[in-house]
């Protein structure tokens, strides 16, 4: 049996963000954008804290990252551990398990959490990232955790020698299909249009013998009893429906921005992403946004991190100008 370890506990516990203190900037979110924003803000001398559900964000779901400059190959979790350790060197307080209920702009900005705490800051950087996008088809919710999964690295090993399906055509989908091909007997990839994954991944995929590809195909329904047993697909060219037996379906069709706590406070675009200007500022003065939650087209770790830096520098400038 192969044994490896993915140690991700830091040697020191970080301090917690205090609810009775006024911060220069509070960052909501602990992914690449949030962590890098904290680093930059702290180095500028700002009183900064991170409020997050979980440190690491969706990068944790990525098995291998090969396109973050300086790391030719690193697991998503290791990369996030590097980020976190780097930020912790600066003694930035981090409170996790935080669910933000709403943000209010009074004399200062207030962040209200689900456990009825109020955190105060002169500026806020929203880096809440995104959630997996759902197919929104019958059976998807019903069979979530009963064959329907949004995390291939978590659940893949439960399908040893099984027949699984991956839905999607981007890097995440192809990466998952490659990983699953080593575990499952057969992997089917279903995508509604053409692949848009990096060529390097497509080359690797083409070498695999247990992968079947269905392009121009959508899934109409997921069916089963106590767990899923098959899907109904629809081939757009032939106009025909087909029933395919699968034990598990991994849905990797992108993400939707997490803006539920904003409740109309800030302007969003038609995709629901926060509209930011070239400096990362939102429609509400003193509130900045960065990473996948903002309307920056490309959702990449390095871009999210860089956007976080930009938002922190803009927040610093805002505070220095005494606008708050």
């Amino acid at each position: 049996m192969a044994i490896d370890f993915s140690l991700n506990i830091g040697a020191t516990k970080s301090k917690r963000v205090e609810s009775d203190k006024l911060y220069d900037t509070l960052i909501i979110g602990g992914g690449p954008a949030g962590l890098n924003a904290a680093l930059y803000a702290k180095r500028k001398g700002l009183q900064v804290g991170i409020l997050t559900q979980k440190v690491g964000g969706q990068v944790l779901d990525t098995k291998i990252v090969e396109n973050y400059l300086g790391y030719s190959k690193i697991t998503g979790e290791e990369l996030m551990k590097e980020f976190e350790d780097h930020v912790k060197e600066y003694d930035v307080p981090i409170t996790d398990e935080i669910q933000v209920k709403k943000i209010e702009c009074k004399e200062y900005k207030e962040i209200h959490t689900a456990n009825n705490k109020i955190y105060k800051a002169k500026t806020i950087i929203i880096a809440t990232g995104s959630l997996p996008r759902m197919l929104d088809i019958p059976g998807e919710k019903e069979f979530y955790g009963k064959g329907v999964s949004y995390c291939a690295i978590c659940d893949g090993s439960l399908y040893q020698d099984g027949i699984v399906m991956v839905v999607g055509g981007g890097n995440a989908a192809i990466g998952s299909a490659i990983d699953l091909s080593r575990i499952a007997k057969k992997v089917m990839i279903v995508h509604r249009s053409k692949f848009r994954a990096d060529q390097i991944l497509m080359d690797r995929l083409s070498e695999l013998e247990n992968v079947e590809i269905y392009l121009g195909t959508v899934i109409n329904e997921i069916k089963g009893q106590s767990r899923m047993t098959h899907v109904i697909t629809f081939d757009k060219d032939s106009g025909k429906e087909k029933s395919i037996d699968v034990e598990g379906i991994f849905i990797e069709i992108g993400h939707i921005p997490r803006t539920e706590c904003l409740q109309g406070l800030i302007e969003l675009d038609d995709k629901g992403e926060i509209i930011i200007d070239a400096n990362g500022e939102t429609s509400e003065p003193g509130i900045f946004a960065a990473g996948d939650v903002a309307n920056v087209k490309y959702k990449q770790i390095i871009i999210a991190a860089a956007e976080g830096a930009k938002a922190a520098l803009s927040a610093t400038e805002y505070i220095n100008k005494g606008k708050h």
Binding site: Q53, E97, A114, S149, C154, D155, L158, R227, G248
Partner: peptide, 28 residues
Amino acid sequence: ISTKYNVSGVPKIVINEDTELLGDQPLD
């Protein structure tokens, strides 16, 4: 036992046999 509890996604949390939660749920 995993089959008995129909585990096909993890973490799957089963409380007193019949209440099920999926994912790294908050303490709340």
